[in-house]
Every structure is written in structure tokens, then in C-alpha cells.
Amino acid sequence: MNSLYRTLLFVPGNNPGQMVKADIYGADCVIFDLEDAVSIHEKDAARDLVKHYLTDLRPETCRVGVRINAQDTPYYEEDVRSMVSVKPDFLRLPKSETAENIRQLDKLITECEKACGIEAGSVKIIATIETALGVYNAYQIASASPRMIAIGLGAEDFRTDMRMTRSEDGQEILFARNLISLAAHAAGVMPLDYVYSNFKNEEGFIADVRFGKMLGFTGKSVIHPSQVPLVHQVFTPSDEELEHAKKVVAAYEEAMAKASGVVALDGKMIDMPIVVRAQNTLEYAKASGKEL
């Protein structure tokens, strides 16, 4: 398992046929969905299904999360209680609007971890932000709990809340994307790009992933298996980028070994941010299976 969250693949929580195949598409994370993908009459069934699936067949090659129902629904508490008992890597909370939402969830998870004898802090939180208020509070949400590992934008609900007109290339959500990326990096968590729902438009999708990467997003939520390799492809450094990164890191390590404060490559000074970027590049290259 690599340490990246490039792809978070949503899988309906009440479809055993699809759940069994969830781990074959190479996604860095699989998120079993108890929320939008499950009708209100089947919330109980989906919980039992995800619980037994994770007990018997938990995937070994990717991280596992569960998208629970929002805090203002009658399903939320039981979702948290039943899911924490099978120790997913994280719970994804929809409609996160304030830091208080996260603190409440944190508290409930803590209580459940204790009840189940699970090490405190094991289950992390990813917050989906999908309202105007949520975007406005993005930094507070992202920094509300040590369990927070990422925040993501839920574009569809956000557009509705903002009374936006939908465009194909997503111009209208640009500000929210910028803000989510900024808030996440400021809080030291990962920014996750929104779901691009038209999975048949491969070209549009790739362009969108590239743009998101440019804005600083480190991964993307996806709803179709075919989108997984496309995201990874965008996040895979080119051979030239990889070669350059290797040289930078080598120069840095050499400078460290010599206890020299100055890192230089081909006669040029290298700033620390460039070194960090190069280290990130190596990590992405490794996750993509490139030889280092």
C-alpha cells in the first residue's frame, strides 16, 4: 500500500457484487457509501453489509473509508457506531459546515473506539464541504481535530446552495476549489478534488484532474473505476520530471552529508521548496510503480 490519496473510489454500500470488486481497480482508497448511494429504506442493510464485508474481506491493497450520513439525519449516529466497530481508516462526513460538526464526530468516534477496544485516534476523518457556509469555514473545519486528514469539495450540493449555473468546465466552482486547497494546505491536511460525474467524458475528466492538480489538490474522489487510472496517469511524474527530481534530491542529500547549508545543482542554487517538491515527485513516481 502506498501512502498517497490520489484516488478515492466511491462504491455503493448496499451492492455486494460491486463491493467485492472494489479493490481491483487500483484506487488508493475505497469509500463505501452509506449516504447518497443507499435509499432511506436500506440504510440498515447497507451498514450490515459494509460491516460484514470489512470483517471478512477487508482489502489489503488499499485504504478503506466509509461515507456516513450527515449529522442532521437519523442514520448518522448508528452509522458511526457500527462502522467504528470494524475500524475503517477513515469516516467521511458529508455536509460539514462548521468546526463543531467535526468536534462532535470526533467525540462520538472516541467514545466508540473506547467501547470497541480500538486504539484511540485510529479512525480518521475526511470532511466533505458542500455548502456556502462550509466553504467559508473550510480552514476551521480542516483544523478542528487531530483526526482530520483531508477535506474535499462536494460540487453538486455546493452549486445548489450557491444558486450557481453549472458549466461543463466548472468555472463557477473555481473559487471554492481554490479556497479548499488553500484551507487544507494551511491546516496541514490533504485537499481532495470534487467528483467529476460524467465518467464517459474522458478528455474533459483528464483536463479537470490536471487543473485540480495545478491548484494544489493531491487527490480526487471518483465514482467510476475507469477514472482511477486516468487520475494516476495525471499524478505520475514524467520521465523528465523524475530525472530532475532525482538530481535535486541527490544534490540535497550530498549537501546534507557535507553539512553544507547551500544546495546547488548544475551551478544553480536550489531553494528548499524545490527540494520538497522533488521529494513529493519521487513519492508519486514510486506509487505509480516507476523504478527509482
Partner: peptide, 17 residues
């Protein structure tokens, strides 16, 4: 053609219901 986990889950939900 359900796997064991699904059979257990569905029966559990049915019992609870």
C-alpha cells in the same frame, strides 16, 4: 452467487427487521 459476508449481512438485517 453471494459471498459469505453478504449472506450473513442480509440475514442479520432481516433478523433485526
Amino acid at each position: 452467487g453471494a459471498l459469505d459476508f453478504a449472506i450473513k449481512a442480509r440475514v442479520e438485517t432481516a433478523v433485526k427487521r
